[in-house]
Design a binder for these strands. Structure first.
Length: 498
RNA sequence: GGGGGUGUAGCUCAGUGGUAGAGCAUCUGCCUUUUAAGCAGGUGGUCGAAGGUUCAAUCCCUUCCACCCUCACCA
C-alpha cells in the first residue's frame, strides 16, 4: 500500500483521520431529518416566522469559506439549499470541526431558516453531523460532468453533477407508473413470465444464449414476452400485461441497447381496432400526466399527441409515399422498385424483407405525427391473424411517431394450424439464412390447440417513449446503466494469477 | 463491420519535435450575509497503452484500447 496519493486524495484521507481522532464516526447509521430542501424553500414564510428548527441532510456540493463563516450548498433528493455557519454561533471547536468537511461529504444540519441579503433561502446552522466522508473529489461545479464515458460508467457522478439527469429518470418512473395505473384501472393483471426460455420467440431478433448448469441446458434470454402472455390468455387470464427487460443480440446505436424495457399487453375478445383505440388513449394519458401538455417538440418537429391518431394502410402508405401500388408485386418487382428508389438491396431476400425495406426507408420516416400504419402484408407478421377482408394481409398495426416505431400490435393469430404454417414459413426463411426468423414453437402451438379466445396484443419499447417525452436523442440517456465495454481489460479482469 | 472524430491535472479545456498550460477544484494566509465570493501565494500530470522514427516524441509513424458521431444490420 505504498502507492502515492495525489495531494487531493491525501488531504481527504487526512481530514478523515482528524475526524476519527476527534471521536467522530465518519460513517454513522442514521439521521432524523424534518424536511427536504424543497420543502423548506416552499414553506419558507411559515418556517422563518415561527423560527422553528429544521433538520436536513445532503451532500455538500459547494463551499464558500469567509474566515469566520462558511456558506455551502447541500443537495438532497429534492434539490439543494444553502446553509450558513458562524463561528460565533457554534464556538471555536465546533466551527473548526465543520472546517474539516468539504465538498462531496454528506452531512446533516439543523438550524433556523432566513433569507440572505441576496434573497436566498438559507439555514443558519446551530448543529451538524457528519453522515459520510467523501474520499474523492466532485466533478467541477460550473461546467458539470460532460464526459459521456464517465457519465454512463459512473452514473452516480452524473446524477450528482447534472440535475437534468435525475429529472429524466423521475420522468421515466412516472411514465412506467402511469402505464401500470392505466392498465390496472382497466382490469389488466400484471404478470411475470420467464426471462430465461428454452425457446425464444415473439419477435424477429437474434437471442442471447446462456447455460443452466443444473440441467445442463442451453437457455435463451427472452426477445419478447408474447408467446408466454398468449399462453396465459389461453388459460383464461383475459387481460394481462408485463413490463420487463427483453434482450436482443443485435447492433447497438442511439435507438438500441441490448437489454431494454418492453411493455406488452394482451386483451381477450378484442381485435386490433379496439386495441388502437386503447393504445392511443394510453399514450395520451401518459403524455399528459408527464408533460402537462399534449404537444411535444422533438427534432424540431411539433408533434400533437392528441388522439385520434392517423390510420393508414400499408398499401395506401406505399401509394402515398412511394407512388406505387405494391399490393400485387412479387419479390423481384419489389426489389427492383427498391433499387429504383436508390435503396441498398444487398442481402434482401423474400417478399417480406423487400416490403420491410421499402416501408422502413420510404414510408416510416414520413410518419411524424402519431400514425398507425395498419394491415401489414402477411409475410411480415407471423403471429398476426389474417385480415378478415384480405387473405394477403394481417390485422396488424405499428404506431409511428417522429418516424420511429412506438409499438406493434395485432389481432392475435389463434388458429393453431395457421400458426404452424406461419412457423414453417419462418423456418424456411431461416434456412435461407434469415437468422432472425422465428423458430417453430411446438409448445406454443399445443397451447393454441386447446383454444385461445380472440385477442389483441400490443408491445411498446418503453425506453423510446421515455426518449420522446424527455427530449433525449440517445437511448443511453434514458437507461441508468447502459452497456459499456470494460474500461481496462487488464486491470479489473485479471486478478491474482495464482 | 465501414467511415469520421476524441483521449493532456479530480472536472472543463488550451497547447508544442526540445519531457506542459488555463479556469474551476485542492492547499496556505486574510476575510462574520457569500453565491461562478474575493485577494495573494503554492501543490498537483507515466499528455489512453505498446512499439517505431529521431540526438530528442505528448506531438510524426504503426498497432492496440476506450468513448462519441455516422453508415450498414436491426427494434
Amino acid at each position: 500500500m505504498e502507492r502515492e496519493l495525489s495531494e487531493i486524495l491525501r488531504v481527504r484521507r487526512e481530514k478523515l483521520q482528524k475526524l476519527i481522532d476527534k471521536g467522530i464516526n465518519p460513517f454513522p447509521y442514521r439521521y432524523s431529518r424534518t424536511h427536504l430542501s424543497s420543502e423548506i424553500i416552499a414553506d419558507f414564510e411559515n418556517l422563518s416566522e415561527s423560527g422553528q428548527t429544521v433538520k436536513v441532510a445532503g451532500r455538500i456540493i459547494s463551499w464558500r469559506g469567509h474566515g469566520k463563516t462558511v456558506f455551502a450548498h447541500l443537495q438532497d433528493g429534492s434539490g439543494k439549499i444553502q446553509v450558513y455557519i458562524r463561528k460565533d454561533d457554534l464556538g471555536e471547536e465546533q466551527f473548526e470541526m465543520f472546517g474539516l468537511f468539504e465538498t462531496g461529504d454528506i452531512i446533516g444540519v439543523e438550524g433556523t431558516v432566513f433569507r440572505t441579503r441576496m434573497g436566498e433561502v438559507t439555514i443558519k446552522i446551530s448543529g451538524f453531523a457528519l453522515l459520510a466522508k467523501s474520499l474523492k473529489p466532485l466533478p467541477e461545479k460550473w461546467h458539470g460532468l460532460k464526459d459521456k464515458e464517465i457519465r454512463y460508467r459512473r452514473r452516480y457522478l452524473d446524477l450528482i453533477a447534472n440535475p437534468d439527469v435525475l429529472d429524466t429518470f423521475i420522468t421515466r418512473a412516472k411514465i412506467i407508473k402511469k402505464m401500470r395505473d392505466f392498465l390496472d384501472d382497466r382490469g389488466f393483471l400484471e404478470v411475470e413470465t420467464p426471462a430465461m426460455q428454452v425457446l425464444y420467440g415473439g419477435a424477429n431478433a437474434r437471442p442471447f444464449v446462456t447455460h443452466l448448469k443444473a440441467l445442463d441446458l442451453d437457455l435463451y434470454l427472452r426477445i419478447a414476452d408474447e408467446l408466454y402472455l398468449k399462453r396465459l390468455i389461453v388459460g383464461g387470464m383475459e387481460k394481462v400485461y408485463e413490463i420487463s427487460k427483453d434482450f436482443r443480440n443485435e447492433g447497438m446505436d442511439r435507438n438500441h441497447n441490448p437489454e431494454f424495457t418492453m411493455l406488452e399487453f394482451y386483451w381477450a375478445y378484442a381485435d386490433y381496432r379496439d386495441l388502437m383505440n386503447l393504445v392511443e388513449e394510453m399514450i395520451f394519458s401518459v403524455v399528459t400526466s408527464v408533460l402537462d401538455s399534449d404537444e411535444i417538440t422533438y427534432d424540431d418537429n411539433l408533434i400533437s399527441m392528441k388522439p385520434p391518431y392517423g390510420r393508414i394502410t400499408f398499401a395506401d402508405a406505399a401509394r402515398k409515399y412511394i407512388g406505387t401500388d405494391i399490393t400485387g408485386l412479387g419479390e423481384k418487382k419489389l426489389i427492383d422498385l427498391a433499387r429504383e428508389k436508390g435503396l441498398d438491396t444487398d442481402g434482401v431476400t423474400g417478399r417480406g424483407a423487400a416490403l420491410d425495406l421499402l416501408s422502413s426507408e420510404l414510408v416510416e420516416p414520413k410518419l411524424v405525427q402519431p400514425t398507425f400504419l395498419i394491415d401489414y402484408p402477411i409475410e411480415l407478421s407471423p403471429l398476426a391473424k389474417i385480415h378478415r377482408e384480405d387473405p394477403g394481409l394481417t390485422e396488424r398495426f405499428e404506431l409511428f411517431i417522429n418516424g420511429l416505431e412506438f409499438g406493434n400490435g395485432f389481432s392475435e393469430l389463434t388458429d393453431p394450424d395457421d400458426q404452424r404454417r406461419r412457423f414453417e414459413s419462418q423456418a424456411r426463411s431461416r434456412l435461407m439464412g434469415d437468422e432472425e426468423a422465428h423458430p417453430i414453437d411446438e409448445d406454443f402451438i399445443l397451447a393454441l390447440e386447446h383454444g385461445m379466445p380472440p385477442a389483441a396484443g400490443y408491445g411498446l419499447g418503453v425506453d423510446r417513449l421515455v426518449m420522446l417525452l424527455t427530449g433525449n436523442s440517445s437511448i443511453r440517456d434514458v437507461i441508468l446503466f447502459p452497456i459499456m465495454k470494460p474500461e481496462n481489460p487488464g486491470k479489473g479482469a485479471e486478478s491474482s494469477d495464482g
